[in-house]
Design a protein around this nucleic acid. Structure first.
Lengths: 131, 131
DNA sequence: ATTATAATTCGCCAAATGGCAAATGTCAAT
DNA sequence: ATTGACATTTGCCATTTGGCGAATTATAAT
């Protein structure tokens, strides 16, 4: 979008200037073309998540911080604030299962999970037919 | 990018199926066209941050969780069932798989592993018949 | 002032995103 | 088999993104 959060550019430029960096320097440390960076700063372009990610550290931002500023992430609990491992607390992964599964490629791990999901869905269907 | 994290589609589809939702339903609750959703699932398109954000809640993901899966955010703090401390023979357990499996009872976890072992043994047998 | 040099902006283009509508696939009920 | 109701996939197109190189605009240094 050409303009939607027209502050982001300002913020980015502020940060860059205050470091201080030139567009070209930021370009070479981030791998994003300086022309594109310029356009982002003056809000002619809106950075994609990829771009945002690449410029975060060079500018001294946390990734999620920038994402929040960009409106990609809701102003959520970024960073430190929270640690309760959300939703489910009681459950844990059996260490033996974890160890065995970890020997497989991620592909196989995922496929395995997929099979489990399938079986569950089938089971749900069967349960439904019963009543 | 047409394909870069070619697992994301799988994950999204798994999650959608397991809810269960159709593409159209997800489309109407997320406001993303079903055709686009379909292409994302089969990795013909890669979702932008905006899209990802809109489908996160309908699919029961935390926003940052999905962003991490998509590779937009580096696997930061919020890691669920992981521990880089232990063993880990070069291989590691995919965080998403770990998370999903951890929701099951240990019995189911073990049974799942059992099924995988069976399948591997069957596959080995088939491979042998070939020579 | 006049160059030289670095920094920013502009013009143009290739590639990717995402929507809409039509085509195709799937499946149950007649 | 045929129909009808959904679900998914495909074709097509408008819009955006982002890079490259040229033009322009600072910034110095003589």
């Amino acid at each position: 979008m050409t303009r939607e959060n027209h502050n982001l550019g300002r913020i980015l430029k502020q940060q860059r200037i205050s470091i201080p960096l030139t567009l070209q320097e930021l370009s070479s440390t981030s791998g994003v073309s300086s022309s594109h960076l310029g356009r982002i700063e003056r809000a002619e372009r809106f950075p994609s998540a990829h771009i945002l990610r690449r410029i975060a550290k060079p500018l001294g931002f946390d990734e999620d911080e920038l994402f929040t500023l960009a409106g990609f992430l809701s102003p959520h609990s970024s960073g430190v604030a929270e640690e309760r491992s959300s939703s489910y607390s009681g459950r844990h992964l059996d260490p033996f299962v974890a160890k065995m599964l970890a020997e497989e490629s991620v592909e196989v791990q995922r496929a395995t999970l997929g099979i489990l999901t399938m079986l569950k869905s089938i089971a749900r269907g069967m349960a439904r037919e019963h009543d």
